[in-house]
Structures are given as C-alpha cells and as structure tokens.
Amino acid sequence: MFEIVHKRQLSEAVFEMGVRAPRVARKARAGQFFIMRTTGHGERVPFTFSDWSAEGGWIRFIFMRVGKTTHELSHFEVGDSVADVVGPLGIPTHVEDVGRIAVLGGGVGAAVAYPVARAMADAGNEVTVVLGARNEDLLILREEFEALPLKELLVVTDDGSAGEKGLVTAPLKRLAEAGEIDHAMAIGPAIMMKFCAATAREHDVPCTVSLNPIMVDGTGMCGACRVSVGGETKFGCVDGPDFDGWEVDFEELMSRQRVYVDDERAADADYSRGCSCHQ
C-alpha cells in the first residue's frame, strides 16, 4: 500500500496529490510516468509526475476528476493509501541545452510541463513557458512556474479570464515567427498538442509532444498504448511517452483515447449513485 501524504484541490475538479513511494521517487525524471491502482478492484491508470523528492521519498501528480477512477481518487485523503504505485516508467524527456525553448502546458498538462520546464532551465536553456487553460479557475501551478528561472511566463485562457484570450498556439506562432525559439515542447490534451505541432512545423520548429494513450501494464506487455509515429507503430509506454510531434498521427490517438468512453461514463454514473458527494 502507498500512503497519500499530500492533497490540494486546485480547482473544482482538479487535484494535486502526493504519495509516499521512495523506490519510485528515487528514480523519477522529468517526462516519466507511473501506474497507479486506487483499490484492489481498480484499473491501472498512468499519471505523469508533476514533482517528486528522492530525499523525501514522495511523488506528486495532478489529475482532473473525469471518470470513476479519478472520481474515487478525489475522495482519498492524506493518511489513506492507494493499492499500487509502480514506476518510474517511460523514457525520460530528453534534456539538453538546445538554446531557446518554448514549453507549452495545456490544462492538466501543465503539471507535466512543470518538471520539464524546470529541467530544461537547469540544463541552461532559455525557457519560455506558455500556460493555457479553458478559464482562470482551471489554470494551475502559475505560482510554481513563476518561481522558475524562466525567460518569460505567458498565460492564455480560452475565455480571457486570465492572461491573453485565445489558445496556446497564438503565442507559439508569435514566438516562432519572430525566430525566438529553437524547439517547442507541447504537453496537454491531444487536440492541443496536434495544433502546437502543426504550428511549430509551419515555422520549421521541432516540436516534442508527451502523449497520453490508454495503458494497461505500462511496461510494453499489452500494446494498448500503440500510436502511429511517422507511419510506424510505437508503444507509448516503452518507446515514449515523448515523440516527435511532427510525425504523430493525432487523429488516431484521439480516436483510440475514446474507445471506452461509453463504459467509462456508465462506470462513473454507477459509482456516483453510491457516492457521498452526490447525495
């Protein structure tokens, strides 16, 4: 069992959680993920690290309440334990000094962008972070990003309730057009990464994306997470999660992410009927 040592509600449906997992924390690197099972009947769900401490023996992640598992998880409190935590999995983000880099975090993807931006800055890059969300309430980790040694932090919301009104692709386009970035790193919903990769490509800027396909084992055994990259089938868990955004078939990824939508809805409805927060 793995004890929950930190919980913070970031917005109505977004939570930050810390779990005691010293074996995992010792090895975690930016861009990697772990697999969690909440309870003995739980599914195996991948979460990307938002932070960790090897000394403290904890890992952190941020999730949005979208289905049964995240719904159930949102009811776990500090002192409770989850059944399983395994990792760190996936190939860490390739961190080197490439010069000027834009790190774009969309929605809960900002949680993953945080350690990536930190690692890129530590490696000597000039880092611009573009933080995007649907509205101000869903904007996360703004203060944490502000504390990093960034060149600039740009905030964008769909409705203009914070920062610039619009999508993260707008500042990306400006930065690329002005020739101010050598590399882009987009992390967020598949649709956002798709348009970031397309925008970057128009300006010949390489764009790395961090994919979030459905997984079961997370160690290469099942192939649920397969994605098409440059016409080749890759496994998100062992070949990724980072891939060349120019080459990813995002339509396929989005289609594959929707495969259990009806089941997930039914399971959450079933769970919600017996759940204290809906009574």
Partner: peptide, 21 residues
C-alpha cells in the same frame, strides 16, 4: 496479451464491479 490481461488480471468480465473495461 491485452485482451487476456484485461479479462484475467483486471477482471474486466465483471465490469463495472471491477474498473477495467
């Protein structure tokens, strides 16, 4: 591997009692 893992290890045949579809 995936099909059998979902059913055998994760108990998908009991979904939604088990969480894996």
């Amino acid at each position: 591997n995936e099909f059998l893992t979902r059913v055998n290890l994760m108990g998908a045949y009991e979904f939604p009692k088990s969480d894996t579809p």
